Lab assay of single mutants.
Amino acid sequence: VPQRAWTVEQLRSEQLPKKDIIKFLQEHGSDSFLAEHKLLGNIKNVAKTANKDHLVTAYNHLFETKRFK
């Protein structure tokens, strides 16, 4: 089981690129989880459509539901 890579403050910070969060989610989330949160596909394309709040919610949801690969 992966550990949380970032704190809530870090997740919301401008310093953390959306692409980093997407990469983490794609590496650790199950396909059904990723599909549900519309996070499947090319990281660049996902970054265009997903806002930061959406990614933070998905990140927290992944750990709450433990839907890891």
Rank of each mutant, 00 (worst) to 15 (best):
P2I: 08
P2V: 07
P2L: 04
Q3R: 08
Q3S: 08
Q3H: 10
Q3E: 15
Q3N: 10
Q3W: 04
Q3F: 05
Q3M: 07
R4H: 08
R4L: 06
R4C: 15
R4Y: 11
A5Y: 14
A5L: 15
A5P: 15
W6P: 15
W6N: 10
T7C: 13
T7W: 04
V8Y: 08
V8Q: 14
V8D: 15
E9A: 04
E9W: 02
E9V: 03
E9T: 04
E9R: 01
E9P: 03
E9H: 02
Q10R: 02
Q10K: 03
Q10T: 03
L11Y: 01
L11H: 01
L11V: 03
L11K: 01
R12Y: 15
S13V: 02
S13L: 02
S13Q: 04
E14M: 08
E14N: 14
Q15W: 09
Q15T: 12
L16Q: 03
L16E: 01
P17K: 11
P17H: 14
P17C: 11
P17D: 13
P17F: 07
P17Q: 11
K18M: 14
K18N: 11
K18Y: 04
K19T: 14
K19G: 13
D20N: 08
I21A: 01
I21W: 01
I21Q: 01
I21K: 00
I22P: 00
I22D: 00
I22R: 01
I22H: 01
K23Q: 12
F24C: 06
F24I: 02
F24T: 02
L25V: 03
L25E: 00
Q26P: 00
Q26A: 04
Q26V: 06
E27A: 08
E27P: 00
E27N: 09
H28C: 08
H28F: 14
H28E: 05
G29C: 06
G29V: 01
G29P: 00
S30H: 09
S30E: 09
D31N: 12
D31Q: 12
S32Y: 09
F33E: 00
L34W: 01
L34I: 06
A35V: 09
A35W: 14
E36Q: 10
E36A: 08
E36W: 12
H37L: 09
H37F: 14
H37N: 08
H37D: 00
H37T: 05
H37P: 00
K38D: 14
K38F: 12
K38Q: 12
L39Q: 00
L40M: 11
L40T: 09
L40E: 09
L40I: 13
L40A: 12
G41H: 05
G41F: 03
G41K: 05
G41L: 03
N42C: 15
N42E: 14
I43D: 06
K44H: 15
K44D: 15
K44V: 15
K44I: 14
K44C: 15
N45G: 12
V46Q: 05
V46Y: 05
A47Y: 07
A47P: 02
A47T: 14
A47C: 11
K48A: 14
K48H: 13
T49V: 11
T49C: 14
T49H: 10
T49L: 13
A50T: 13
A50S: 11
N51L: 07
N51Q: 09
N51K: 07
N51C: 11
K52T: 06
K52N: 05
D53L: 05
D53H: 06
H54T: 11
H54D: 13
H54E: 13
L55G: 00
L55F: 05
V56H: 02
V56D: 02
T57F: 14
T57P: 03
T57V: 13
T57N: 10
A58E: 01
A58F: 04
A58W: 03
A58G: 02
A58N: 02
Y59K: 01
Y59D: 01
N60S: 10
N60D: 12
N60T: 13
N60W: 05
H61M: 14
F63Y: 12
F63M: 03
E64I: 07
E64T: 07
E64L: 08
E64D: 12
T65S: 10
K66D: 06
R67G: 08
R67D: 12
R67C: 15
R67V: 07
K69N: 07
K69S: 07
